[in-house]
Nucleic acid binder design. Structure first.
Lengths: 203, 203
DNA sequence: ATATGGTTTAACCATTCGGACAAAAGTATA
DNA sequence: TATACTTTTGTCCGAATGGTTAAACCATAT
């Protein structure tokens, strides 16, 4: 395995990830990936035997990228307030760097929920465990959280949604001003934490 | 135009809507639509000249279905609290009836944002106007809303997200228990309103 | 009976994935 | 250097499937 090997193989993966994320599985052709990678189709099959395998590998990577972080944050001994801030910061920051991830993952899982179980197994994560930890963490403190599951969905949704719905929001609320939208997203780190903490404050 | 005409034409539209919503544009073949509609490919082209036109019509319908409601609610003379409750109720209810809409619309607009402008024009809605009305409505009352745009995204996101991410949430948080998830969604109408109102309460 | 409009059959052409094959270029090793 | 092995390219192919069109068929209403 020489240096060139690695770089080609990884280059394919990078390009393919980009193309798949922008166009989805069926919106992507092997030819297109080859073109954008500056190689030819044959080489794609040389490294990754089929379209499905290539996609599978990429999706698994992208998918499993964000789960462990979640668990880690909620297993520290920070206060719940700090955990929430840390979570929101970390996820929004991650999505700013990779804005296509939310829609990509949700879209694929929506048309193809079967292999979600497989994915979870392969990723080596125990979601049960992570969820339980978060639940515990939420119940522990004396806050206005009736249903931890609802709260979790609220928290994640507030982070994810602006990225999944970017084109719509940018157009409808920001007159298609891309700069303004970027600023909006940056400000969201603060906005979402405060919003969440306000919502669960007692009294 | 005989009775059969209408029913066939509409039947195609219904089937196509279903298939397109589940699989997206490029994930859908005319053959598949024809099969599921119990007719053959040619008849599809007889009624709708091309795949693109068929899809376009369906997408426009689905898309424009949810915008006017938003404007209507925020232009009444209800209190802001009532408006928020009405909005959340109405949208979550709508999504419960059509759970695939969020991911469908977001996915399509994500890979194809160009024609969003067209769509808005065709739908006969003035989003500027709607947004402005909402903004006014938000500013008017003495509540803890720093940035109305952030608040709007929060409100919409909390309604939309659980539907867009259904497979993921259902699996990860509800052990794939569909019943439990339906219940969760129903309870969300109350949860989201309360959550929003708590978050913007002064003090 | 004929004209009309819904429907089917059959075929067309382009594109897709997957691969076979031969040859060139590159790399390692003896 | 000579030799063997790996990577990369180019070309072409086959089977399948894609969207689309033209023509024929059929029922019905005039």
């Amino acid at each position: 395995m020489t240096a060139k090997n690695v770089s080609t193989e990884e280059n394919i993966l990078n390009v393919a990830r980009e193309v798949f994320m922008r166009n989805g599985y069926s919106g992507t052709t092997m030819q297109r990936i080859a073109d954008e990678a500056g190689i030819n189709k044959s080489l794609l099959h040389y490294y990754y035997r089929s379209k499905e395998k290539l996609f599978g590998q990429i999706f698994a990577e992208v998918f499993s990228q964000f789960i462990p972080e979640l668990g880690k944050i909620f297993m520290t001994d920070m206060s719940l307030e700090e955990k929430i801030r840390a979570f929101v910061d970390s996820y929004i920051e991650g999505f700013i760097r990779n804005p296509l991830i939310p829609i990509f993952v949700m879209q694929e899982l929506s048309t193809n929920p079967q292999n979600l179980a497989d994915l979870i197994r392969k990723s080596g994560i125990d979601p049960e465990m992570v969820i339980r930890t978060i639940m515990e963490s939420l119940k522990k403190e004396d806050l206005n959280i009736q249903d931890p599951k609802q709260f979790m969905v609220n928290m994640i949704g507030l982070c994810v949604f602006p990225f999944a719905a970017q084109p719509l929001i940018q157009r409808l609320i920001f007159n298609n001003d891309e700069k303004a939208y970027s600023k909006f997203l940056l400000e969201r780190k603060h906005e979402v934490s405060e919003f969440l903490l306000n919502a669960i404050r007692k009294g």
